[in-house]
Amino acid sequence: MSPITASRALRGVTTVADELAQKVRDAARELGYVANPAARALASAQSQSVVVLVPSLSNQLFVDTLEAIHGVLRPKGLEVLIGNFHYSRDEEEDLIRNYLAYQPRGLLLTGFERTESSRRMIEASGVPCVYMMDLDSGAGLHCVGFSQLDAGATAAKHLLARGRKRLAFVGAQLDQRTLLRGEGFRRVLQRAGLYDPGLELLTPRPSSVGLGGELFAQLLANHPQVDGIFFGNDDLAHGALLEAMRLGVKVPEQVAVLGFNDLPSSAFMVPRLSSIRTPREAIGRRAAELILNLIAGRDVEEPVQDMGFELVVREST
């Protein structure tokens, strides 16, 4: 057996026969062998890794996306290096600088908001890059996602179609994608002549169930006539539904509640939460497939790939 075949077997490349790959893994375990990725990178002047940077590892949205990416890249013998920048552009810049030193084969980044220094490093590196979760057709970039503006607009249109007139937007974390959802929501209300800036409740605090309940109570205490609320994340909406039960506020009779991302637990809330379902797994798969094409030097006919989203209507609206 050649060293190349053994290396491929240990990296999980699917072109190696299963029986042969198992023999290599058994031998490696018996010998206590551990692969040295640094040496491999020196030998080839390039690593076998793809770097994926996300703003959170506690948000189910990014966990689902990472699982899908891993499922595409690992069978191709590529290691997935995950970096969590905690919604900090400076922290992301540090991660990009550190990971580029390892000469990765590709970069998968979340959104377009980052420091100018990060942009210069990415461009100068020449490493193929795909941006996830948002779209930008004018920047000449490869991206896979959906329109956050359109998602926010869909939320407003749905609540208006339900006959709601006093509509609020509640957002936390305030990353660019959350702000774009709010902007899409705002534009629809402005066109309808129903926009009230006092009904936007925004906080940079991390999104959570507890925060959602707190903001819901605060909003209704200050604006008791609110009859529809769009929450920028499902966990905020979950907290609102729980707080509504504590306060005796009837949902949707008194106030309709709409979430975003359609997390698995949303279908089991009381009442069942209406939400905008985002294609997080599909985005991960498509982004990983796109980076494979770029690594291979293949032409990409559609650099901007819109995966869309879905309004899921349940009992809360």
Rank of each mutant, 00 (worst) to 15 (best):
L242F: 02
I4W: 00
P204Q: 00
A43S: 13
V34T: 14
F230Y: 14
Y131R: 08
F62Q: 07
P104F: 10
V304C: 11
S316C: 10
L53K: 00
E92R: 08
V226M: 07
P128S: 10
N261F: 01
G248S: 05
V52S: 08
N36Y: 03
V50I: 15
S275H: 03
I283P: 03
M245S: 15
L81F: 12
Q254A: 09
G140H: 03
A28T: 04
F146Y: 15
G140D: 08
R246L: 11
L290Y: 07
A155N: 13
G152A: 10
L42C: 07
G248H: 10
G71L: 05
G182L: 04
A39N: 06
L57Q: 06
V304N: 01
I291L: 12
V63L: 13
A6E: 13
Q176F: 10
Y131F: 15
V313R: 08
V13F: 00
T203H: 06
L61K: 01
S147N: 12
N59C: 11
R105G: 06
G12F: 03
L108V: 14
G126L: 10
V257F: 05
E79C: 00
F112T: 08
V24K: 02
P264K: 08
D26S: 12
V127D: 03
S56F: 02
G213S: 07
L100Y: 03
D306P: 07
L220D: 06
V251W: 07
A240R: 06
T15L: 09
M307R: 11
L160A: 10
K23G: 02
R285C: 07
D262C: 01
R11N: 13
G145S: 12
D134S: 14
D136F: 01
L61W: 01
F260W: 09
A43D: 00
E315C: 05
Q46T: 12
D235G: 00
M307E: 15
E92T: 04
N84R: 08
L57I: 14
R11E: 13
D306N: 12
R166H: 15
L107K: 07
V313Q: 10
A287Q: 05
